[in-house]
Write a protein that binds this DNA or RNA. Structure first.
Lengths: 145, 145
DNA sequence: ATCCATGCAAAAGATTTGCATCTTT
DNA sequence: AAAGATGCAAATCTTTTGCATGGAT
C-alpha cells in the first residue's frame, strides 16, 4: 500500500491547509533543482497566479519549513535564503564562474566522517550542510580556471 | 627569518592602508573564536573607538575579505554574515541549544573525501564550508537532547 | 461558523551607496 | 599633493509584522 505523494497530500499529511497558492509554491520547489530564493519562486509562481503576493510566498515557505517539508539555508557568501525540498541531499556546489548551485552526491563516507567527528568532539550533529565553492563541470570543460 | 605577523604588517603586506579603525577591527576578528557578525564587531571596537561608524566596519570587512585576510559566511538558517580570520578551519558547529558557533577540527580525511568527490563529479572545489547543526559538548553534558 | 491564508502596506533588519571631510601615503 | 578611508545620511534589498478580507475546513 503505497503512500500517495501528491503535493496535496504532502500538505494534508502535515495538517497544513491546501490552497492553490501553496500547491503552486510547493510544486515549484519540488520540481526545482535550482535551490531557488523566495524571489525566484515568486517569479515562477506568478506566471500561473499573477495575483499572488511575495508575502504569501514567504508565509508558505515558513509553514513548509516548520513542518519539515522544506529546508532553508544560505550558501557561500550570499545572505539571502534558498529553499530546498527537504529530502534532497545537502551537499551544495556553488560555481564561482556561472553561479549555478547544484547538488553533489553526499557519499556514505562523508556521513561516516561526520559521525567520527561527532564522537571526537563530544557534541552531536543533527544536520549537515556542506558547501563547496569552485567551478562546476561545465565551466571546467569550457576552460575557466 | 620569521615574518612579522603584527596586525599592522598583515595590512601592509596586502597593500591595505593602516588606520586605527582597521587595526582595531582586524584585531577583534583575529582574537575572536566567536565568528562575530559586523554588529558584534562594531560593539566591541566601539569600546575603544567610540566614534567609529558601523559603515566603517563594513568597509573594512570588505577590504579584508577582498584581500583574503578574512572570510565571510552565513550559518544554518540565519541570514546575516559572520566573519572569520581566514586561516581558521571552516568546519563550523552551530549549537541548536545555546547558539554557540564553534570550530570543529577539519580532518585530513574530510579533505580527501572532498578531493574524491571533486574527481567523481568533474568540477573543482576551491573552498569548503561545512556547517554542522546540533548540540555542542557543553549542552550534551547538561543533558539537552 | 470558525479558523486560518491571503494580499496589501508598512516596518524592521542588514548591507550598500553617495558624498563631503579628514588621514595616510 | 594625491589617493584613499572615515562618518554621516539616505537608499536598497530581504524578510517580517499588522490587519482587513476572503477561502478552507
Amino acid at each position: 500500500m503505497t503512500e500517495d505523494l501528491s503535493i496535496e497530500n504532502l500538505l494534508r499529511n502535515r495538517g497544513l491547509r491546501v490552497t492553490p497558492q501553496r500547491l503552486a509554491v510547493l510544486e515549484v520547489i519540488r520540481a526545482s533543482r535550482e535551490h531557488p530564493t523566495a524571489e525566484e519562486i515568486y517569479e515562477i509562481v506568478r506566471l500561473e497566479h499573477p495575483a499572488i503576493s511575495l508575502n504569501t510566498i514567504y508565509k508558505s515557505l515558513d509553514a513548509f519549513e516548520g513542518s519539515g517539508l522544506v529546508q532553508r539555508f544560505t550558501i557561500g557568501n550570499r545572505s539571502n535564503y534558498r529553499y530546498d525540498f527537504a529530502t534532497h541531499s545537502h551537499v551544495h556546489h556553488h560555481c564561482s564562474q556561472c553561479g549555478r548551485v547544484s547538488d553533489w552526491e553526499h557519499t556514505e563516507a562523508m556521513t561516516d566522517l561526520i559521525r567520527r567527528t561527532e564522537r571526537d568532539e563530544g557534541g552531536t550533529v543533527e544536520r549537515v550542510e556542506i558547501h563547496l565553492l569552485g567551478l562546476c563541470r561545465d565551466c571546467v570543460r569550457d576552460g575557466f580556471d
